[in-house]
Structures are given as C-alpha cells and as structure tokens.
Simulated scan of single mutants.
Amino acid sequence: MKTVLLASTVFLVATRVALAADAVAPDIIPAGFVWTGGYVGLQAGYAWSRSHNTTADGVFSDANPAGVFGGVYAGYNHQFQNDFVLGIEADMNVSGMYGRTDIFFPDGGKDLDHQFDSEVRWNGALRARLGYAVGRFMPYVAGGLSVARYEFGLYRDDSEYPRQKATWTGWNIGAGVEYAATDRLLVRAEYRYTDYGDKASDLPWGASYPSRTSLTSHDIRLGVAYKF
C-alpha cells in the first residue's frame, strides 16, 4: 500500500507542476524538436545493493548483490507549451546481480560452516517522468513502482539448502538526461535508487530462527530508443 501511495503521489505532483506551468504559458507551438510521442528502447547498466539479513537471535549477514543488467523500456511523453515534459514509462530487465558473504554472530564471531548468498534475477519498474525540454536535451526526474525477482539462501560446505524465491515490490526515484540525436533516435543516461523494503523470511536454520531481509539498490544505466 505504501508503494502504491508513493507512486500515485509522484505522478500527481508531476502532473500538477506541468499543468500549472502550462496554464500561464503563451499559446504557441514549440519550435524545433518536440518530445511528444511514444518510444521504445534498449538499456544496460551496472547495479550495486545493500541486502541485510538478521535472524531473531541476532545472527546476520550482508550478501550485497551487484552486477550488470540489461533490458527494454517503453513509454510516452507529452511536451507542454512551456517546455515541461510529462511522461509515463515501463521497463523490464534481466539481471546478473549476485553476492555471497560469511555469516556473523552477535558477539562478533563467524559461522565457519555456513555462507549466505543472494541474487536479483530480473527487475522492472513503472514510473512517471517530469522533464524540461532544452531543445534536443531534456533533464528529468522520475519515480514510481519497482518489482524484482529476489532469491537468497544458505550454503554449507558448498552444499546449498533450498533457496527462498519471491517477487518483491518497492519504490524507486531517479534522475537523468536525454538527448535527441536525431528526430527518431533518443539516447539517455540515468541514475536510479530503489527500495524494496524489509520482509520476513524463513531460512533453513529451523523454526526457532525466523529472520528478516532487506534490499535496496543503486544503478547507473544507459539507453537508446526509437521515437515514433
């Protein structure tokens, strides 16, 4: 519910800003390149994360998955007469983010038998974007809902226990700049922060060891798209 409310707030604020500014702008058609229209593109990047697991009795590990990812994105922009650009966009990526770490006890000791690992298999997002057109350049901010397939588990002497596998949802916020290299070809660079929250998990230490796992990530991505 919190992620839905946050995404709705981001979209409503972006809409109000663009419409309010458009209401006081002169009734003219923007000259030169116009960002209005749909687009579809390819993207790739590198992501690093913080994933903390803690059991009920204080045993913890930080298997922070990191790695490259790549996928597709598509969206639609509308440029107002005052050069504000409001858009909506969705993306989906396959991910190579992986991490493996030792497990530590509350007294500072280390579990010599087990290790904890985690990985993000895929991720996606649905976001609202608010930009400002400066000719063929458009700096923008964006935010909305995120989803990811997250897997984690335990190893003992390189033998793997059954893994925890679930689809996690969260929220994201970011900023970037886009450039219209031609009237049809758009290139971009973007930074994004994503928070998937903190969730209960049942690791195979037994029923007396319930745990909680959190996941946040940062990424830098580059993209190229075709504008319709």
Rank of each mutant, 00 (worst) to 15 (best):
A20I: 11
V224I: 14
N53I: 15
D198R: 11
G45S: 08
A90R: 12
P65A: 00
M92C: 10
H78M: 07
L126T: 05
A44E: 05
P210Y: 00
P106W: 02
D57G: 08
Y191H: 05
G174E: 03
A225M: 04
Q164S: 14
T3H: 10
S159A: 15
N82Y: 09
F137D: 03
I220M: 10
W122G: 06
D57A: 10
S8V: 09
F137W: 08
V13M: 11
S214P: 06
S95T: 03
K227S: 08
R212K: 14
R129D: 02
L185Y: 03
K110F: 08
D91H: 09
R16S: 15
L6Q: 13
F152E: 08
A66E: 12
G99L: 02
R188G: 05
G75F: 00
G41M: 04
D83Y: 15
T55K: 01
G135C: 08
A128G: 14
N172W: 02
R16N: 12
V34M: 11
A18G: 06
K110R: 15
G170C: 02
Y98H: 13
W205P: 00
F33M: 10
L6H: 09
W35R: 14
G206A: 07
A21D: 12
T216G: 02
A133P: 00
G176K: 10
R50M: 05
F116N: 08
D27H: 11
V134R: 11
N172I: 10
V4C: 07
T216I: 09
A44C: 11
L222R: 03
H78Y: 12
D102N: 14
L186P: 00
R163Q: 11
V177F: 05
S214D: 12
H78T: 10
L6M: 09
R184S: 15
D198K: 13
